[in-house]
Nucleic acid binder design. Structure first.
Length: 573
RNA sequence: CGGGGCAUAGCGCAGUUUGGUAGCGCACCUGGCUUGGGACCAGGGGGUCGCGUGUUCGAAUCACGCUGCUCCGACCA
């Protein structure tokens, strides 16, 4: 009996019978109930032993794949000097999401929301030659983002664990190679974690750069919408999904005509009022940028505007709905907007599908008046025509034209190319083969470790609790003596523990003097993949029950066959 | 940041309308009994009723201010 026995009586895992009122999503509820986490403040949690074991397993898988791809692990401080962020220009740009603090000398620091500046500064000081490239450095560390609205437990916390790797290459081709290595590594990581996921093309957002993929863990409760094609391998986040213009049925062009449409300030009312199909209408959405410039956008009545596309098209840092006053100032009329007759110089974006409509209806920039017979190609002047609509289920795939499927997921990881955005801003350069000074070509690659744990639960649970994938379960198996007060049962349990432990199974012994029902309920709630039940029959008939959490399948076997049975089951999970 | 809601024992809640000894279920402790899916009986411990100011003989309860949490929206590498 040389093996230290890990027993539930020594495990701090306070399970709750009732669900705390504050928990909205299932992962949050189950983590609280299973005694995995406790809240400290809004979006800030302590990880108790069970959660920490799972997190360490996710970290370890991540670490192994990062190392295998050529990454080197480092650890950077959470606290970062404001000056570094001044250099990159993000001290001002990052906004309220950055937790800023001052030291006793009144110098500015922040709790790192990300580490591009830190890493660029580190490498800038040491790496001077192309011979030292490529370089990939990563860390697994706490990040802090002062979210406006932390919610969903660990899914959108303020402090969370993240793996972030940064690649430095001498040129674009090298960067793309690093990017591909990381893409492959991420695929391995999420596969090894036992999760159903999809890499999707994504928008780069404020971080900059040209390529990006999100690794989305599929779950109905997820916050990201993704589309994918079953005929080809296209998959993208909804904000990224490209759309080709839809051709409209050709008709003889009618004359542009104003008609009275009292109170028809929504598309629905307009269709009723004029008895036209919604595909024949053109809808307007007005935005203002951070500099208060008005951007008018037009899409087909049954489509939605994709703000990310608009933002990228106009190069804005921020978009918000335009005030009525601002709309009027450029010659528009809220609720009755049209590109026709807007003040010259105003930015007008028209979706390429809306542009194809024949004899459409649009506003007329007058209250209670619309145009009919609108033929955008003839009537719209000084407009930019491009793809600005939000994808919908069934839209044609941009690659093969087949209808796209839509599903929801949780963004657990994202890979980006950064190019030279940070290296140029921060003068991080090296000498190339010709002795010429060049900025590093960078990429950055993140995995939300704590979010991945939450995502795993969102994807794997039932009414009784969590159903852990084997690779990231806090324990692979639990041994439950039905009655721990019967010495023979407890001893049999301990003996099995030793056997399994020695065979490399991550196992726990539930030695609590609780009734069997309590221990079964807890085992289901915590979600150990395999449960081994030791009872009177073990003592009398030498048999043990082995049960698979996910399927409920139970196998009765002889005590001597337990090891073999459990190993085989775990193999198949 | 806008709009709702909530704050009473570790958790879930009642009590607030109509001011008068702070309650229930679960959990916890003791004893008994029980032991294959969250038992039962008896006894027990635990509260500055989120904070502050006011009204009142008297405030969990009424008024005003604040703080925190939460939901919807906006926002989000």
């Amino acid at each position: 009996m040389g093996v230290f026995v890990l027993r539930t009586t020594q495990l701090y895992a306070p399970t709750l019978r009732q669900t705390p009122a504050e928990a909205e999503v299932v992962s949050h509820q189950l983590m609280l109930r299973a005694g995995m986490i406790r809240k400290v403040a809004g979006g800030i949690y302590t990880y108790l032993p069970l959660a920490w074991r799972t997190l360490k397993k996710i970290e370890q898988i991540t670490r192994e794949e990062m190392d295998a791809a050529g990454g080197q692990e480092i650890m950077m401080p959470i606290i970062q000097p404001g000056e570094l962020w001044e250099e990159s220009g993000r001290w001002g740009a990052y906004g309220d999401e950055m937790m800023r603090i001052k030291d006793r000398h009144d110098r500015e620091f922040c709790l790192g929301p990300t580490h591009e500046e830190m890493i660029t500064s580190l490498v800038r000081d040491e790496v001077k030659s192309y011979k030292q490239l490529p370089l990939m450095l990563y860390q697994i560390q706490d990040k802090f983002r002062d979210e406006r609205r932390p919610r969903f437990g660990l899914m959108r916390g303020r402090e969370f664990i993240m793996k972030d790797l940064y690649s430095f290459d001498k040129d674009e081709a090298g960067m793309l190679e690093s990017y591909q290595k990381m893409f492959d590594a991420y695929t391995k990581i999420f596969t090894r974690c036992g999760l159903k996921f999809r890499p999707v093309e994504a928008d780069n957002g404020a971080i900059g750069g040209a390529h990006s993929h999100e690794f989305t863990v599929l779950a109905e409760s997820g916050e990201s919408n993704i589309v994918y094609c079953e005929s080809c391998d296209y998959a993208a986040s909804d904000e990224k999904a490209e759309l080709k213009p839809i051709e409209a049925q050709a008709e003889e062009a009618q004359e542009l005509k104003k008609v009275s449409t009292p109170d028809a300030h929504t598309i629905e009312l307009l269709c009723k009022c004029l008895n036209v199909p919604v595909e024949k209408t053109i809808k307007a959405v007005a935005f203002q940028t951070e500099t208060n410039e008005v951007v008018l956008t037009f899409v087909r009545g049954d489509h939605e505007v994709n703000e990310t596309k608009v933002q990228n098209a106009v190069g804005a840092l921020e978009l918000r709905m335009a005030d009525d006053d601002a709309i009027i100032a450029v010659g528009g009329c809220p609720g009755f907007m049209s590109p026709i007759g807007i003040k010259k110089g105003t930015k007008i974006l028209v979706d390429n599908t809306a542009m194809n409509i024949c004899n459409a209806v649009s506003g007329a920039n007058e209250k209670d008046v619309h145009y009919t017979g609108v033929n955008p190609k003839r009537d719209f002047t000084d407009v930019e025509v491009l793809d600005i609509r939000l994808v919908q289920k069934g839209d044609p795939c941009p690659h093969c034209g087949k209808p796209l499927e839509m599903t929801r997921g949780i963004e657990a990881g994202q890979v980006f190319t950064l190019g030279t955005k940070y290296s140029e801003a921060m003068h991080a350069t090296f000498l190339d083969e010709n002795g010429k000074e060049k900025p590093f070509v960078m990429g950055c690659y993140g995995i939300g470790v704590s979010r991945t744990m939450a995502a795993a639960i969102e994807q794997n649970n039932d009414k009784d609790g969590i159903i852990w994938p084997r690779a990231i379960a806090p324990f692979e198996a639990v041994i439950v003596p039905i009655n721990a007060k019967v010495p023979e049962q407890l001893e049999a349990g301990e003996k099995l523990y030793d056997e399994l432990k020695v065979s490399g199974v991550d196992v726990l012994l539930d030695d609590r003097k609780e009734r069997a029902g309590v221990k079964f309920k807890d085992a289901d709630l915590i979600g150990y993949p395999v449960r081994i039940t030791v009872g009177p029959k073990t003592v009398e008939e030498n048999t043990v029950e082995v049960r698979i959490r996910r399927t409920g399948e139970t196998v009765v076997c002889e005590k001597e066959k337990v090891k073999e049975t459990v190993l085989k089951m775990l193999e198949e999970l």
